[in-house]
Design a protein around this nucleic acid. Structure first.
Ligand SMILES: [Mn+2]
Ligand SMILES: [Mn+2]
Ligand SMILES: [Mn+2]
Ligand SMILES: [Mn+2]
Lengths: 216, 216
DNA sequence: TTAAATATTTAGCCGTGTCTAAAAATTTAT
DNA sequence: ATAAATTTTTAGACACGGCTAAATATTTAA
């Protein structure tokens, strides 16, 4: 199997590909807090093992094999997060680092049984979809809160930015998955907005609103 | 924290110390299937980090710090095994290798919560005691089956040798934790014995009987 | 008590995954 | 179209945790 380190690279490649088409050495380096030279070395190895297509100076892109590897790691990560929150009673802001370790445990049978134990969850505690055993991933068609129109209604479907501090801010605002919201004002000036939630009105910066995904 | 590799050495040191007083390089090497030279290198490092007392050519012995580290790894290993069997429905012969990986996950909070979730089990699926949070380990005072006297009664308390093939043999014999047994014959010649179990009489070699621990 | 056998350590090598510094390629600005 | 800035790769180093072969210490047997 791919080493823990390689698995982390593959996961980052996948994440960054969602945003761009092709991923640059520097992007990976800054995401992983490593030096570009280290990334460059590793890209060569990943290309050799056919996890990525890579042309020097031109960036990298996951192959079929790479995507499928990425999805299997993400699947494991999100299933473990679900276990940690639903059964061990962790808070949603506490599970990421632990799942970051657990995702590397190598046993298909373990994941099958964990999935069964959890009752085949479709999404994790942050609302992110859990890829299926064969890499099927459901696009849940959510909309970033800042893209809603005035007076639109919806419910919180997922939190995009999963850092502890962002999640803790969500807690403070009373935002959790399923919470109903309504857009009651959009401030043109700074793209911030006012929403009604739990019958109270709160103000959110664009930065924050972008990271809250809504089911309309 | 100590690397995965170092943790495995420490665990082996602990295990081998149960049998001998001081542990030799070769013992560790053959247990870990590594070369003595590699072990020799590692012992130097473990001594440097004060996990062991080590005098060249004289063997190694865990320090207080080393024992406490060993117990914490064993605690994790056995709690995870308990989870795998009791909740994920693994068989007792399937969990060792997975726990071998899980035992290295680094999070005190995780283990506390797992322990709570499992309802503070005292022993694992093989009957081995689970060390407490502070390293307390209960000696359950079990007797190897081969040391029982003729006509002694008892129940299966633990299986010492946890290899899949040995455990599968136990399954075939109908031996599980709690099963009642009675010694109905002891063969002087080869130290084998005949026991009554589930109302049937079966014959066990000394080698096998040694690895079955009994609560009288 | 010496010699042979065995156990252990040392020396030197290798793959992995990181780093720094320097070179080279690409992109951006003039 | 150059030159400057930026990005990326290469070169060379290092720590880790393995290995083989050779040296050395210890134990066992003559
Ligand atoms: Mn990870
Ligand atoms: Mn998540
Ligand atoms: Mn292990
Ligand atoms: Mn066990």
């Amino acid at each position: 199997m791919a080493s823990q380190s390689k698995e982390d690279y593959i996961k980052v490649l996948y994440k960054l590909e969602q945003e761009n088409k092709v991923v640059s050495t520097n992007d990976i380096a800054s995401f992983l807090k490593m030096k570009a030279s280290s990334v460059s070395d590793m890209l060569k190895k990943l290309a050799m093992e056919e996890y990525i297509d890579y042309t020097k100076y031109k960036g990298a892109k996951l192959t079929k094999k790479g995507v499928s590897k990425a999805l299997s790691i993400i699947r494991k990560h999100r299933l473990w997060e679900t276990f940690l929150v639903n059964h061990l009673k962790f808070k949603w802001d506490q599970v990421h680092d632990i799942a970051e370790q657990l995702e590397h445990i190598d046993s298909d049978q373990l994941i099958d049984k964990l999935d069964h134990f959890l009752n085949y969850p479709k999404s994790d505690p942050h609302g992110d979809p859990i890829p299926g055993k064969n890499g099927e991933i459901i696009n849940l068609g959510h909309t970033p809160l800042n893209e809603l129109n005035l007076m639109d209604n919806g419910s919180i479907a997922a939190i995009k930015k999963g850092t502890p501090s962002f999640l803790q801010y969500m807690d403070k605002l009373g935002i959790e998955l399923g919470t109903k919201i309504k857009v009651i004002d959009k401030i043109e000036f700074d793209k911030s907005l006012e929403i009604k939630i739990h019958n109270k009105s709160i103000h959110l910066s664009q930065e924050v609103a972008q990271n809250i995904l809504i089911k309309i």
